[in-house]
Design a protein around this nucleic acid. Structure first.
Lengths: 156, 156
DNA sequence: CACAGATCGTTTAGTAGGTTAACAATTATC
DNA sequence: GATAATTGTTAACCTACTAAACGATCTGTG
């Protein structure tokens, strides 16, 4: 649409006609905010934040990763991971274990309570997503995750 | 899966089997980061940020919104919008216009160069999305936006 | 009409979630 | 054995918000 054409029309455009509404990036951000708000409400002030939960998942499911490995898998910088690992260690959910073969690195080993906390958090998060996404049937939800993974793959 | 079952298996799990990978929230965030990184690269250091562009869209397409209106439509607090409107005004893309009927409010009126900047940015952004999302056909892309809108609707 | 209450834009202070650059310690490569 | 690369870490910085409070202004009720 040209500026002239716009001025020839009524002043206010219908929201659903705005180009903004067709942009994937804009809808992605808005949808993420909706989901994240409920996540925070469900997990509470002292619960695991999304990024800490995702780090804990890797530590539990792939024990003895290094911090550099983990940062790569999470798609963040090594320096940014330090605070996350600090929090998980302060909560008693993992230990930084020295590796004799390479004294630069410290393997991330989950504790018993780390594994339990992971499983408890995962149950809460699954409930949260099931409740939030009840308007999507199984096929739609699978399709959504599939499409999002395709976008993720570009960034590699 | 229980902890006992996990310990009975090999140490490291396949990434694609992790519950994390099936979560909508996690995939939403990761996909958003991928898209946003390219957005920043395309728009450059002095380009409009996503939030400023979305605000400009509303100002251009629905002239004379108030800041409270705009904040509601963007899903952010009034206080958070001030800096965004400040930037758009500093760039000369809009004016805060006094409204005689209600001296509390200032209508947001786009300028000529604001409209031009909007159209130029939109063209760049459409290019960016077309390039990033080339692996999705038209139907998939439409379906993705449709599903994201459904999630957005919960938060209202 | 008066006035209590809501609303508007704004400032200030705080938070979450990162990045970049530099560093010492250590390991790998030539 | 010198040079380069990697690891975890700190420090300083940035973006994108929120929450609370403010004066100015408007609205609804008695």
């Amino acid at each position: 649409m040209t500026r002239t054409q716009r001025k020839a029309r009524a002043d206010a455009m219908d929201v659903s006609e705005m180009a903004l509404e067709t942009l994937v990036g804009y809808n992605l951000k808005r949808a993420y905010v909706v989901l994240q708000n409920d996540y925070r409400a469900v997990m509470g002030d002292h619960g695991l934040s999304p990024r800490v939960f995702s780090a804990l998942t890797f530590v539990v499911e792939m024990p003895n990763l290094t911090q550099s490995d983990l940062a790569r898998r999470l798609g963040i910088e090594r320096s940014g991971l330090v605070a996350i690992v600090d929090e998980l260690e302060a909560r008693g959910y993992l230990n930084r274990v020295a590796v004799p073969q390479d004294r630069r690195i410290q393997a991330l080993a989950p504790t018993e309570s780390g594994v339990q906390a992971y499983e408890a958090a995962l149950a809460l998060i699954n409930e949260h997503e099931d409740r939030m996404l009840h308007m999507l049937n199984a096929e739609e939800r699978e399709q959504l995750v599939h499409l999002l993974k395709k976008i993720r793959e570009i960034g590699e």
